[in-house]
Amino acid sequence: MGNFDQKVNKFIEIFVEQNGYAKVIQGLQNTLLIAVTGLIIGIIVGTLIATVRVLPKYKTLPKVLNGICSFYVALFRGTPMVVQLLVFYYVLLPIIGLKITGVQVAMLVFGLNSGAYISEIMRSGIQSVDSGQMEAGRAVGLSFGTSMMKIVIPQAVKNILPTLGNEFISLIKETSVVSFVGAADLYVAFNYIGSNSYEFMVPYLVMALIYIALVLIISLLIKLMERSLKKSDRRN
């Protein structure tokens, strides 16, 4: 075990003395930033798509919108996240002539990507709400959109919260590919420590522990949120 102690010492040395901790904090920040922004964009995009997909479809406009949304979902679910990142960063952005950083590209792509997944989650959530709820909303003179916003979606969100939590967890973990477009996440930070000490065992182990800790904390938060949202189901 003496060998392992040595490795730990080396890691601590670089972590403390060679600015390793600053890189890790920076990486953690980027990882969380990308995952959280991605989730928020994803929820907005996903809710919009899900709403379009449950619209009554005897008019032309909903049909066209529905077609566009199906295409969007097929596109983003049908290609790996890494490919989407690369295409956005190296193909689409240069074509439009937009200059943004890797982290910003990652936030955008993660949002659009999770939007495709969340749309399906949200759709099943909306369909799990009794259709009488929408009817009652329409019957008192609220529009389709208002009934959706004020009555159906809040109940749908409550039903899908565990699944939405899963999506957030997988977003956190998937951020480990953003170094492909030069965004400095946790992987980049620990890779830096590893390359400076020619020793990868401890840094990558610590990285794994950080991911696990993040996911555990998030699971706990979701559980708490679920409990507070469930209050309208409780009988007292």
Binding site: G132, A136, G141, D233
Partner: peptide, 21 residues
């Protein structure tokens, strides 16, 4: 139709109270 529905109440077989309110 939404404007006219305000003047037409409706009561359902299964009540349909808003569960989240």
């Amino acid at each position: 139709i939404n404007i006219h529905r305000r003047n037409m109440g409706m009561v359902f077989q299964h009540f349909n109270l808003f569960n989240n309110k």
